[in-house]
Design a protein around this nucleic acid. Structure first.
Length: 480
DNA sequence: GTTGAGCGTT
């Protein structure tokens, strides 16, 4: 039996009533539909006068022991620095607005739908996020049986972003919403997921989550079953993922190797075109005390779009904070690549220089004469940023990052840096070296798009379907 | 034993 609880954006604001679910929980999605951007709830404990957080597990907010109706609840938003970023983007200059309006909605695929979910239900579920232009459940034309996935399109890009940034509990199953493969290359995305090789069987998903949480919030852990000696770990912050790539880590006395997760549906596996040109810059400074700074770059990536993603600004020296990571839950978004363009940061330089850390030094020991460089200053800004030079101010009215980052946050700084559009590149991944890269960007013909592969046999589909629910249980039961 | 499950009759 569903009942209503009172939620206000903040103390002093007028509460509205939100429906809880049959099991007494409040869905984070229900909350976010009324208070976009909310990541949790709190209430004032009358005894201690302090705020208490509401338990959040797998997108469900759980009532305090005394029940929902004893308190008025207040929304919790992401950390201050992130909030400011959002606000900044929303009010924003004409330029940013232009970028926002440029960001178009795309069809989104919803994977993992329950067989019974209808288009109507799908639409109703997603309407809480924004106007839905299209909702489809793909069905077998003969039997009418759902194929377990569907498509959705929003009118509003913000709604699309919100929907893609979390998992969705639809009719009791957790579903992923992604940009479909058919659109890959048209949407800029950033990998948040790393591959963890040389795992042993006694390293559990929880072990991985616990271990890697010290580097940043872990949003997903995937261990294929049966055991195959590897795993995937997804971070909220792509910069964290990038920083870890190439490293060996010891977990339960086992040396595991972290590397880039190659896209599941990589076009190269299907005879499609080649790789685009994507470079990722890491943040300047290290995050934790035991973290390396990140001055180099990785240079592989899914095909299609040449892009450069500026790293975060110079690193704050802070140790990865225990607070801020502590709360389990939140949206365990499963996105491999949260879409930063979608978040409105495309075209900006990297994030502001983080405060709090040691000063960045110019690794080449030379002055900067940006005007002398024969290329798009935005790219230069991105490149410099990538090289660890942190914020370069407003370049050509375009590239420069936003305001200097708030330093000293417990987790060592703001979210991942922005990205700057690079040349469309069919060029091969550049050889290591910053200058080398600079000489290569901007070249290149069209990248090969993803080729279509043969459809799996119907029998395989059937088998996959039968295993599906079991798999999901395996995947999620650990986090209850 | 180092790369995950699923991707659109228009």
């Amino acid at each position: 039996m569903s009942s209503y609880l009172q939620v206000a954006e903040d103390e002093g604001e007028e509460p509205i009533e939100l429906p809880s679910e049959d099991d007494g929980t409040l869905l984070l999605s229900t909350l976010a539909a009324q208070f976009p951007g909310t990541c949790g709830l709190k209430y004032r404990n009358p005894e201690t006068k302090t705020m208490r957080g509401v338990r959040l597990v797998e997108g469900k907010l759980h009532a305090p022991d005394e029940g929902w109706d004893k308190h008025v609840y207040y929304c919790v938003f992401p950390k201050e620095n992130k909030r400011k970023l959002d606000d900044h983007l929303e009010n924003s200059t004409a330029k940013t607005k232009r970028m926002e309006t440029k960001a178009k909605c795309s069809d989104l695929i919803i994977l993992g739908l329950p067989w019974k979910t209808t288009e109507q239900q799908l639409r109703e579920y997603f309407e809480s996020f924004g106007e839905v232009l299209m909702a489809q459940v793909k069905k077998d034309p003969k039997t009418g049986q759902s194929k377990g996935f569907g498509f959705i399109r929003f009118a509003n890009h913000d709604a699309q972003v919100r929907v893609m940034s979390q998992r969705h509990l639809i009719d009791g199953r957790w579903c992923d919403v992604k940009v479909p493969n058919s659109k890959e290359g048209q949407v800029h995305q950033v990998p948040c997921k790393v591959f963890v090789g040389r795992c042993t069987e006694d390293i559990s998903a929880d072990d991985l989550r616990e271990y890697f949480s010290k580097f940043g919030e872990v949003t997903d852990v995937f261990i294929p079953k049966p055991f195959r000696a590897f795993a995937f770990v997804t971070f909220l912050d792509p910069e964290v993922a990038q920083t870890l790539c190439g490293e060996d880590h010891i977990i339960k006395q086992v040396s595991v190797h972290v590397s880039e997760a190659s896209p599941k549906n990589d076009s190269s596996h299907r005879g499609g075109g080649g790789f685009g040109h994507m470079i990722r810059g890491g943040g300047g400074g290290g995050r934790g005390h035991d973290q390396k700074g990140f001055g180099g770059y990785q240079a592989t990536g899914p095909g299609g779009n040449g892009m450069y993603q500026g790293g975060g600004g110079g690193g704050g020296g802070g140790v990865v904070g225990e607070e801020g990571l502590g709360g389990r839950g939140g949206n365990r978004g499963s996105l491999d690549m949260p879409n930063l363009q979608a978040l409105g940061i495309t075209g900006q330089g990297g994030g502001g220089g983080g405060g709090g850390g040691q000063n960045l030094t110019n690794p080449l020991g030379m002055g900067l004469n940006l005007g002398a460089l024969p290329m798009n200053p935005a790219l230069v800004a991105a490149a410099l940023n990538q090289a660890g030079w942190g914020l370069i101010g407003n370049l050509q009215g375009g590239g420069g990052g936003g305001a200097g980052g708030g330093g000293g946050a417990p987790d060592g700084g703001g979210p991942a840096g922005g990205q700057a559009q690079g040349g469309q590149g069919g060029a091969p991944p550049p050889q290591p070296g910053f200058l080398n890269w600079m000489s290569q960007v901007g070249g290149g013909g069209a990248a090969g798009g993803g080729g279509g592969g043969p459809n799996p046999a119907q029998a395989q589909h059937q088998q996959a379907w039968q295993q599906r629910d079991k798999q999901q249980n395996f995947k999620y039961e650990k986090y209850d």
